[in-house]
Design a binder for these strands. Structure first.
Length: 945
RNA sequence: GCCUGAGUGGCGGAAUUGGUAGACGCACAGGACUUAAAAUCCUGCGAGAUUCAACCCUCGUGCCGGUUCAAGUCCGGCCUUAGGCACCA
């Protein structure tokens, strides 16, 4: 019975129409079935149309949604449009049409494309963030923030894009360039609406514990929030009666403070200007800093700059030492207190600064080398590195077998200053007399065991770097046991041959000239002296600071408040009115939404006001409170606003009384599975979680965390692993692919292409392979005969395949789900005939990935009711058990044969079978069998000697 | 620099609690069908040594070492790479 299949496009539109007309994918808000909510980030409907990257994540979620429905769930799988934002506005400015129109057109194109892919979306819940019925509730929720004191207006030094003429959040200007147009961002002071997001920093970290996000997403969020723990310390200033408070994560290094640095914007400069003797110089530095962009200030600067403030002197509260104060742009006003205590010995930045400005460096932590032992004898010693700049070599002492290569070293005599000791040792051991000190290195705390003396030692060692001036030498006077050669070697040899950890470390310190930022033994530190554990030292110091009232424990976050204003036309108007008498007054709920006016001019003004500011009819209004003339806020909300609650609206999209009904919120609960790009792992996801946590705290939503699972798909690159881009001409248009290969082949290919979470390259050949797979599925229909059970040869693999595909789709291992079906198809093709039942189950399993073809085959061969209304196939565990299995026989861990074993075989039988194998005999002959390991159903390993 | 992943054939990638490494697909080679091509079907396909051929053997999951009867998988130390954070004190 040969049947002819209709053309792919005919079948596809036929079933798409069927699904729509029969409302198969419409989710019910009241249902006895268990609920499941899948969501893929709604797209920005750009003019470019759908990308193959969209197809990947949409198909993945669609496959999971289709399968869940067949498993008896009430599935919510909606889609909508995130349509506010710059591109539509730019387009409108250029063409003088309302952005609304451009958006409408783009949505039409996008929706058509998504439908052509056969997505099982519930279109009855579709909306766009630009619909007044939707943004009414975005505005309403903003007013909730306002009412609860979570929104405030503040003068902010903001990132300003001179081309877009708008303020940008830190998030929108990462790297110092405008996210949208790539222009260098400037600093500008502006009144902005802010949301108190930093209040939620800790909650946003804690909340992650209640979610099941991918690890990389959690980490990205935690990094972004940037929590650090440490202490605040109050330094007094000699000349004034006010403290200078700093934030530090290393209070344990307080004794090593040799200067302080305040940010150029620090308020004390203004406040105590009269006391600053070099005010002009300081002011000039402030001006220079302002001109620098955030990017230059944070990314490009390698050289430290700064100015010492003459006339203000800080006092270290721990030891009453007087220390200078500098201003420098490496200290930021918006983090911590805008002031730091500088410990050049143990912080790289402070070290650089101190080196450049010639400030004292006091080490308070000694690196510990070697291994600590009991009953150590203590001594003090030195290591001296002598460098000859003429030959670029270092002076070493080669003990050969007796101790290898070392620098000059020695034990300090009682009360001998270490520098004297170093000089003496060089002269005594090598004879060189004409050299000069370059620098003293950090000391090292070293532990070692002297075998010749059978004794353990602890030494505190000072290190020195000297430079040779001339070859002048005197006779050496060595002890009898001092048998070594004096050799000049290059740096490479030093690194290779000097094995002693102490000498290595001193060399590093001397030559590299870097701060010692790791832990070690506390020195020069009063109460902390001798401690060797960093955490203990910090704790003890904080206790001490608290006791003395000069400091306290403190946690800081990098996460800042959310700048919520944009000076743009195409965004949600901020629903506030400014009245001379009443101040900022919310627009009453009955007057929401505050609609965008219908005009034709959208250019931002040159002074940075929103385009709305020019529309006087719209701006002028009356105060909702006192009725006097008042003005509307002309700033609009950022693009992130509409996407910060949209998943809630899908639960109840047509409600005109509430943003979402409480019943709907309770029924749908948390979003079970949220998919989106890695580029949204920080910003969008943090904004959305913050928004939801706020709604939860004021009792508007039942869950604190909105998303249970968050996964990110990998990007699809062009062939050869380069990014798809218009300029490279390697962009794949899904419409073209559907035309040539069909939607099912495209879906199947994108699921088979590789690990869902990883980046993959597009391959036309691979796509063709999947097309072949679909064609073979169709051709298999020729073999179908009546039958309501599985064919005997197929039964076992059928149950196995059902199990595998069921598990794989749920865990997003689509590539192995497809390959399982390929294997199943290969097996079925070997049969003369297959039953309807065989074929129907194959179609059911493939349906989530290739829904059109499988529905058609199901109908064509009269296999049963439409697949979209059918149940997901089940498997029988007992059918999975293999009666007979081939297992490997190893000899000493190497596979030497395979044997067939029965499920009932006991160990002795299996062992017997294994020992009979010719190749096993060959490898065991004449050898002693130590033991035989038999793992039932898996492996036999024979160990011989 | 810090934090998270990831490194397996020519390529995309499989491999359960450690138990036959390379499933499945692509590419390639040979063959069948065809006047021919496309399509389709069959066979082979990690590297090397050996052989007429087959069996058989050696090596092989980024590198070095360890645990184990047995390591892609576990442990320690590196290297490379992708992403996140970054003068954040």
């Amino acid at each position: 019975m040969k049947k002819e299949m209709q053309a792919t496009n005919v079948i596809e539109s036929k079933w798409q129409k069927y699904w729509e007309e029969n409302q198969v994918f419409v989710a019910q808000n009241d249902s006895d079935k268990p609920k499941y909510y899948y969501l893929v980030e709604f797209p920005y409907p750009s003019g470019a149309g759908l990308h193959v990257g969209h197809v990947r994540s949409y198909t993945a979620l669609d496959a999971m949604a289709r399968k869940k429905r067949m498993m008896g769930y009430n599935v919510l799988f909606p889609l909508g449009w995130d349509a506010f934002g710059a591109p539509a506005e730019q387009y409108a400015i250029k063409n003088h049409i309302h952005p609304k129109k451009a958006v409408e057109e783009n949505i039409k194109v996008f929706k058509g494309q998504v439908k052509k892919l056969g997505m099982s979306v519930d279109w009855t819940r579709e909306f766009s963030t630009t619909d007044p019925e939707y943004y009414k509730w975005t505005q309403w929720q903003f007013l909730k923030f306002f009412e609860h004191g979570m929104a405030y207006k503040a003068k902010k030094n903001i990132n300003w894009c001179p081309k877009c003429k708008t303020g940008l959040s830190n998030e929108d200007s990462s790297g110092g360039v405008c996210e949208r147009c790539g222009t260098q961002v400037e600093q500008r002071e502006k009144e902005q609406w802010m949301l108190r997001m930093s209040d939620y920093a800790q909650d946003l970290i804690d909340g992650l514990d209640d979610t099941d996000f991918q690890e990389r997403i959690k980490t990205a969020q935690i990094n972004w929030i940037g929590k650090s723990t440490g202490a605040e310390v109050d330094f007094s200033i000699k000349e004034i009666d006010e403290k200078l408070t700093v934030y530090t994560t290393r209070p344990d290094t307080l004794y090593g403070v040799t200067f302080m640095v305040i940010a150029p914007e620090h308020p004390y400069i203004e406040k105590y200007a009269s006391l600053i003797k070099n005010l002009d110089e300081v002011k000039k530095y402030q001006e220079d800093t302002k001109k620098k962009t955030e990017f230059e200030r944070t990314q490009l600067v390698k050289d430290k700059t700064g100015v010492k403030i003459e006339g203000l002197t800080a006092i270290n509260p721990i030891n009453d030492t007087e220390i200078p104060i500098y201003i420098s742009d490496y200290v930021m006003m918006n983090y911590g207190t805008g002031a730091i205590m500088a410990v050049p010995a143990h912080d790289d930045r402070d070290f650089d600064f101190a080196t450049k400005f010639g400030i004292k460096i006091i080490p308070v932590i000694e690196k510990m080398t070697g291994e600590k032992r009991d009953n150590e004898s203590y001594k003090k010693s030195i290591v001296a590195v002598l460098y000859d700049p003429k030959t670029n070599k270092y002076l070493t002492i080669n003990w050969h077998e007796k101790g290898g290569r070392l620098f000059v070293g020695g034990t300090r005599k009682e009360d001998e200053p270490s520098l004297d000791c170093a000089k003496r040792e060089i002269i005594e051991e090598t004879g060189y007399t004409d050299f000069e000190l370059v620098r003293t290195t950090f000391p090292v705390n070293h532990h070692y065991f002297a075998f010749n003396k059978n004794k353990a030692f602890e030494i505190d060692c000072d290190g020195f770097l000297f430079e040779l001036k001339s070859d002048k030498k005197q006779d050496v006077n060595r002890d009898e046991d001092e048998i070594f050669d004096v050799e000049w070697v290059d740096e490479e040899t030093v690194k290779k041959e000097i094995k002693d950890e102490l000498h290595q470390t001193i060399f590093e310190y001397g030559v590299r000239s870097k701060a010692h930022t790791e832990g070690g033994k506390m020195i020069n530190s009063g109460v902390l002296n001798g401690l060797t554990n960093k955490t203990d030292s910090i704790e003890k110091m904080i206790e001490y600071l608290k006791e003395k009232g000069i400091g306290r424990e403190k946690t800081n976050f990098k996460l800042q408040d959310w700048i919520f204003s944009r000076q743009r036309f195409w965004g949600e108007p901020i629903p506030l009115v400014y009245c001379e008498d009443c101040g900022w007054v919310p627009v009453p709920e009955k007057d929401l939404p505050v609609r965008l006016p219908d005009v034709t001019e959208y250019e931002p003004t040159d002074d940075g006001e929103s385009p709305l500011a020019k529309i006087t009819d719209w701006v002028n209004t009356t105060c909702p409170k006192c009725g006097k003339p008042a003005k509307r806020e002309t700033d609009t909300m950022p693009n992130w606003a509409g996407s910060s609650w949209y998943w809630l609206r899908y639960m109840d999209p047509h409600n005109d009384k509430e943003f979402v009904s409480q019943d709907a919120l309770k029924y749908w609960g948390q979003l079970d599975w949220y998919n989106g790009g890695m580029e949204h792992a920080t910003r969008h996801l943090l904004y959305a979680r913050f928004w939801n946590q706020f709604l939860y705290n004021i009792g508007l939503v039942p869950y604190k965390e909105p998303f249970k699972v968050r996964v990110s798909h990998g990007m699809i690159l062009g062939e050869g692993g380069v990014k798809m881009s218009k300029s490279l001409g390697n962009v794949i248009n899904p419409d073209d692919v559907i035309k040539t290969y069909g939607a099912d082949a495209l879906r199947c290919y994108e699921m088979f292409i590789g690990d869902y979470e990883k980046e993959v390259s597009w391959s036309e050949k691979g796509l063709n392979g999947c097309k072949r797979f679909i064609d073979r599925i169709v051709r298999l229909g020729d073999k179908v005969i009546d039958g309501t059970s599985y064919s005997p040869n197929i039964e076992k693999i059928m149950h196995k395949s059902i199990k595998k595909v069921t598990e794989d789709i749920d865990s997003m291992k689509f590539n192995t789900a497809v390959s399982t079906l390929m294997i199943l198809l290969n097996e079925m093709e070997k049969e003369e005939t297959i039953t309807k039942q065989d074929y129907r189950t194959l179609c059911l399993l493939l349906n989530p990935i290739a829904p059109h073809t499988t529905e058609e085959l199901n109908e064509m061969y009269e296999l049963g009711e439409p697949l979209c209304k059918s149940s997901w196939p089940t498997y029988d565990e007992t059918k999975l058990v293999e009666e007979e299995k081939e297992i490997a026989v190893q000899v000493n861990g190497k596979v030497r044969a395979t044997i067939k074993v029965n499920i009932n075989d006991d160990e002795e039988t299996i062992k017997g079978k294994a020992m009979q194998e010719e190749n096993v005999i060959r490898h065991t002959e004449g050898k002693e069998i130590v033991k035989v390991i038999v793992i039932k159903g898996k492996i036999v390993n024979i160990v011989v000697k």
